[in-house]
């Protein structure tokens, strides 16, 4: 599913080169739920951005579902984000002017699937997320937990091979955190969604099948 070999990422800040990733090796199998933990500056977010096609790697190899990210152009990485990966962010990142339903629909629209027939699978997902009755509300009328569940729905509406979650419970209280983590676990167990979650929180990481630790731009396991 994900094969990362000797992945390096160097940022050029003026005359200074910052080595954010120094040779990451990681394999994630299909339907696996992996948590990546590590201190700030360990390279977690850079790994997240590379796997999500938001920034290109400097060297090494990164395969997602057989597609080599190192060889991808900007346009190909944009296409990867349409249907290959879905994002869940700490700050939910819903569009404030749209309702929950419209936030989900815009992801379908961008992927060119807006006019597709209703997706029974996705209706089941909405039930699992418990947000069917909140879809006509705008984000400001939703609790943090509800917003994050809408963000999860948006992330998987196009059936991505990989769901990337960056501190998905970072802005939530304990009750909502547990609910969101349970939803992620439920998605993984019921529909086999492959998930890679970045977190500082050991309790959140415990929901995953496997925990990998990053330090100084490398996986230390």
């Amino acid at each position: 599913m994900i094969e990362i070999r000797d992945l390096k990422k160097v940022f050029h800040l003026g005359d200074v080169d910052v080595h954010a990733l120094r040779g990451v090796n990681l394999s994630v199998t299909k339907s696996e739920f992996v948590a990546v933990i590590g201190p700030s500056g360990s390279g977690k977010s850079t790994l997240f951005h590379i796997l999500g096609g938001l920034t290109p790697p400097t060297s090494g190899s990164v395969f997602i579902d057989g597609r080599d990210l190192l060889k991808m152009s900007d346009a190909q990485r944009t296409n990867l984000r349409k249907t290959g990966v879905g994002f869940v962010f700490q700050k939910y990142n819903l569009l404030p002017t749209l309702t929950a339903r419209e936030n989900i629909d815009i992801a379908r629209d961008i992927a060119g699937r807006r006019n597709h027939a209703p997706d029974p699978w996705f209706q089941e997902v909405l039930k699992l997320l418990g947000i069917e009755r909140r879809l006509n509300h705008k984000p400001r009328a939703l609790s943090g937990g509800e917003q994050q569940r809408v963000a999860i729905a948006r992330a998987i509406v196009n059936h991505p091979a990989l769901l990337l979650a960056d501190e998905p419970t970072g802005n939530l209280d304990t009750e909502n955190s547990n609910a969101v983590l349970a939803v992620l676990r439920g998605l993984n167990e019921r529909i086999g969604q492959t998930i890679l979650m970045i977190t500082h929180n050991p309790e959140a990481a415990a929901y995953a099948h496997r925990i990998v630790e990053m330090r100084d731009g490398r996986i230390v396991e």
Binding site: G52, L80, K82, N93, L95, I106, A107, I110
Partner: peptide
């Protein structure tokens, strides 16, 4: 800016 970033994360092309 942030909303545009969200759209780009969702795969919106420059043309979109």
């Amino acid at each position: 800016t942030r909303e545009i970033g969200i759209l780009k994360a969702l795969g919106a092309s420059p043309g979109y």
